[in-house]
């Protein structure tokens, strides 16, 4: 019973922690993250994808709900306009689960899936911002200055955190 609760709690609590850390890290390192090349450490997304990869195979319904609610919160607290990440996060979970049918879950496969997810988030997020009239960047500028660096940063974060997070999920799942 205790084990089950622990398994159920790890994913949502990690998600909330990642949510807050994302904004705090953005503030602490804003001199380099919000400079000429605007970058975002998408930690919430990272945890969401890692959760889908390592934990989500039996918890699809909870995963979608978590993604949806977290997306809505993300929109409300960070962006101020609701409806952008609220739908992108579940979509990303869907895409990840879809690709997991064809790709094995290992470092290379997971990285490829994560890259596709990040590209979806960047492009659709920008499109959503455009619809909400929030964007201060032109599309060309976005592609030239923000797209590449953000992709690179998140790729590095994913590679660095891949094994620790995988071990964490395995540890919680296997401990009696």
């Amino acid at each position: 019973m205790k084990k089950q609760i622990r398994q159920q709690l790890l994913f949502p609590s990690g998600l909330i922690l990642a949510f807050f850390l994302e904004g705090i890290i953005m503030k602490l390192f804003s001199s380099s993250l919000a400079g000429t090349f605007p970058m975002v450490p998408y930690l919430t997304l990272l945890w969401l994808i890692d959760g889908t990869l390592f934990w989500g195979s039996q918890h699809a319904r909870m995963l979608y709900w978590a993604a949806f609610l977290m997306g809505a919160w993300y929109d409300s607290y960070f962006i101020g306009v609701i409806g952008i990440y609220m739908f992108i996060f579940p979509l990303v979970v869907y895409v990840t689960r879809l690709l997991l049918v064809y790709v094995d879950e290992n470092l290379i496969g997971a990285t490829m899936i994560y890259l596709i997810d990040i590209i979806i988030v960047l492009l659709l997020g920008y499109a959503g911002g455009r619809i909400g009239h929030l964007v201060y960047f032109s599309g060309i500028h976005f592609m030239a200055f923000a797209f590449g660096p953000t992709l690179g940063l998140n790729l590095i974060l994913f590679l660095v955190l891949y094994y620790p997070i995988k071990r964490l999920f395995e540890f919680i799942n296997n401990r009696s």
């Binding site: 807050f20 904004g23 953005m26 975002v40 998408y42 962006i79 101020g80 964007v135 960047f137």
Partner: peptide
């Protein structure tokens, strides 16, 4: 408290 984690919005 924090800065919006977005690369198209400064908030």
């Amino acid at each position: 408290l924090n800065r919006t984690p977005s690369n198209w919005q400064q908030q």
